[in-house]
Computed example of a mutant assay.
Amino acid sequence: MVAAEESWGVSRPVALDEAVGLLTGAHQVVLLAHVNPDADALGSALALGLALHRHGAQVQVSFGAPEEPAESLRDLDVAGLVVPHHGVAHVPELLVVLDTGSVDRLGPLADRAETAGTTLVIDHHASNSGFGTHYYVDPRAEATAVMVLHLLDAMGAPVDLPTARCLYAGLVTDTRNFRAASPDTHAMAARLLVAGVDAEAVTRPLLDTHPFSWLSMLSTVLATARLEVGEARGLGLVHARIGSAHVSGGRQEEIESVIDVLRTTAEAEVAVVLKQVGEHRWTASMRSKGRLDVAAAASALGGGGHRVASGFTLDGECTDILDRVRHALADAPLLG
């Protein structure tokens, strides 16, 4: 468990059984993923939301931006639980925040963490600030979906095919197609396959499918790539930027996939993609190959995440932000 922010004076960690009590005791539940939710965030919210819906609760699932889930994730919402952010209840009885390291990552829905009767944070990010009234955080879990499966089992909720598809989507993306999965997580995946998940059908749209226009965008973005072998404590840094035209005109899946291409650079331990989301605002994806803690670097820049996959948002000029990234990486700890 991680420490709570001082501003959330009543926030406290909870164990599995207490988290289950909060979930099953609520009649009205709002489950939120972070802005631009990935498969782990939205899949976890939908899997848990489906179980609570079947338990008899009134359930809404949402996120602050964009207006709709990524195209590759829409089929996961078999029960129609997702609502646009402007339709989310203003004073939820129970707010459940999933896969979200800090309250600002909720975007325009951040205020619900204060207006809700109870706020339960469920997350696996080591940098989680412990906001809300209760938090259930396990940095040892490779994905929030792992934690949700434990919760479903403790609730006695069935893991049928719709639920298993949501959880498998979270596992396959956050473990990089199971390359970073423990034996226990592989066993979980096998259990989901037994439940009927078609691994190829779930994985292909998430990781292996792009429109032809993606090739043109990727060509433009990779032309901005620069390799700095002396940075990141001498382990090498490669970075690229995606301009606002491509960010606003492309699908979320295509924008987020660029980091997976950049990280293949053999000479660089760390890859960073800066994405322009405003005139002077940039969000960044950071990845390491396991020798440098990019979560520490992201935290120093106001963000957070995993030790090998993190991000942040900053205002300023791209060149100045890259300077700050270099300094943060120079101070980041080495990993075992």
Rank of each mutant, 00 (worst) to 15 (best):
L218D: 01
A169E: 13
L22K: 01
S11C: 09
H124V: 13
P158R: 06
A297Y: 01
Y168R: 04
L322C: 06
P183A: 08
G234M: 15
D260A: 12
S182I: 08
D99E: 09
R54D: 00
W282T: 07
P84D: 05
D174F: 05
A189C: 14
T313K: 01
H125W: 01
A296H: 07
V238G: 02
Q60E: 15
G49K: 03
A296T: 06
I242L: 09
S244W: 13
L192Q: 02
V258G: 00
M147R: 07
R191T: 06
T119I: 14
A79M: 12
M286F: 13
L334R: 10
A33H: 00
L335C: 03
S310P: 04
Y135A: 11
G243D: 13
S72T: 10
G249F: 06
D17F: 13
L149G: 00
A199Q: 11
G290Q: 09
E200V: 15
P139N: 04
L207F: 12
R191V: 04
V83I: 03
E267D: 06
L46M: 08
L167F: 02
Q276I: 07
R281Y: 04
G249I: 02
D77W: 08
R165E: 14
N177M: 14
E93L: 15
V247D: 02
V29Q: 05
D111N: 13
S44E: 06
I255M: 07
G305Q: 02
